[in-house]
Amino acid sequence: MSDQVSYHIRLEPTRGWVALKLKELWEYRELLFFLVWRDIKVRYKQTILGASWAILQPFMTMIVFSLFFGRLAQIPSDGIPYPIFSYAALVPWTFFATGLGMSSNSLVNSSNLIKKIYFPRLVIPMGSVMSGAVDFVLAFTVLLLMMVYYSILPTINIVFLPLLLVLAFMTSLGVGLWLSAMNVQFRDIRYTVPFITQFWLFITPIAYPSSLIKNDMLRLIYGLNPMTGVVEGFRWALLGTDTAPGPIMLVSFVTALLLLVSGAFYFRRMERSFADVV
């Protein structure tokens, strides 16, 4: 052992808003990696269908949507076959919704860790959202197969897809941070999340195109929902719809960023009571 002190820290009470400590978060990246890895490994253990659940969820929803909204209600789909129109939206949506659900409950589900060991608590909801990436890749592969089936070539704009995915990630984590921190104090959140997700599904142009909304002012307000940007962006990049990112996209990005930053600060503010309350 060297005589040099490598590290000094003062533990004292904190009040109000506190720094995010992103540097420390970076130091714990391996833990984040292992938590994501654990979630992925464990997710479909003891299920018969295993990882096919990742595909079945959006795929079955697509079938239901196609039957009821596409066939029966004759909802327009920007000139693209309805099944692929809705599935292209459901893939990023499922990533978002799963991430939201998992992260909201993540702190409560990790209470034994929180009470027994220190690490930046932010890695818990972050890991939950990230672990959805594998599901996304599986569902996305099916999307590519469907594009082959419908003979649709992706546009050059496919290069923007990672950015759109980041936008979905930011939104999911942003809301997840708010809800997970609240959930520690109020388990009411657990019962609110499915409701929020369902509501959000309908204010996002998944079953219908956003072109149905004609009023420009209304469209801008509509764009406050970052998932609108994500979903329309996916269709634009892959299916070549006429929904190129415009002002709506900008609004989406700003909203997502606000959600994420405010969520992170709120989370850090509440963090000091996690171990005592959870």
Binding site: V5, I9, R10, L11, E12, P13, V42, I114, K116, Y118
Partner: peptide
């Protein structure tokens, strides 16, 4: 794991804590 309500602690060096054996073990792994 938890913050003090009053006062402070200065710690010189990296801390490893073992409050429980096998924290975070996952049954399925």
């Amino acid at each position: 794991i938890t913050e003090p309500t009053t006062g402070y602690v200065d710690i010189y060096g990296r801390v490893g804590s073992l409050l429980e054996v096998g924290t975070g073990f996952h049954q399925e792994l």
